[in-house]
Write a protein that binds this DNA or RNA. Sequence first.
DNA 1: CAGCATCCGGTTCGATACTG
DNA 2: CAGTATCGAACCGGATGCTG
Lengths: 136, 136
Amino acid sequence: MNNSVKSTSEPTLTDKFQRGNVLASGCPSRGVLQDVTSRWGVLVLFALLRGTHRFSELRKSITGVSEKMLSQTLHALEADGFVLRTAHPVIPPHVDYSLTESGREVAKRVEELVNWIEVNINPILNARDKYTQRYR
Amino acid sequence: MNNSVKSTSEPTLTDKFQRGNVLASGCPSRGVLQDVTSRWGVLVLFALLRGTHRFSELRKSITGVSEKMLSQTLHALEADGFVLRTAHPVIPPHVDYSLTESGREVAKRVEELVNWIEVNINPILNARDKYTQRYR
DNA sequence: CAGCATCCGGTTCGATACTG
DNA sequence: CAGTATCGAACCGGATGCTG
């Protein structure tokens, strides 16, 4: 749910009001960035770009995510206005998650990043292998 | 430095070889994605897009990062082939960090994401306030 | 089904001290 | 200057049990 700055080193006064510069620790964009680029946040946005999904569907499609983390991630993204949660009052409960307008905008950018990495994964892995060989 | 999969739930056999799908836990792209979207990874890439920098310069410009985390982040990005480390053999030591060709490619995509968030930070923050008011 | 509350082990992180 | 080593503290994340 991300409560302000997590760093224990107090942001300076200048930082605190330095909006518009992520490199400054007080910049509120850092918090949002954290939600979006969090381990599961990226994958949730990526998954929801392919359409509306229920909680259990997301849980299945995003392999490895726990119930708790998925829930937490969805809440954070909902709070930021990126994800829309729609609960249908039926029994058993049925809840749908989809992207909002701004959610689609961020998700598109996340997707571009993810896609680039997937396309170029082999050269990257090779680089990594070379690196570990040299410095092991 | 990211060693393969971190999730404790064992990836299934199908996962393990399911390349080309980040949503599967065995996909190697997830690891790279973690390096790139890590708390400080994003900011380092963003900063280096503005040119070559020394260790201490990065430490100063990226407010709040500790020496240890900066070092760790730079190593991970170097291993993935995104960052080039150039040590000049002088005393006192002088080390430059810059982006590689592929580093610039990822960084550009990271930048687009960051920029979008910065531009739209106010509506997002408002959404968050509304949310916390409603559910506090 | 969708999810919160709680516990708890492992990892990460930051501050500090130290080295080449 | 550019790091590594070390050590608590904080946090993450999974498992379990329970609710509507």
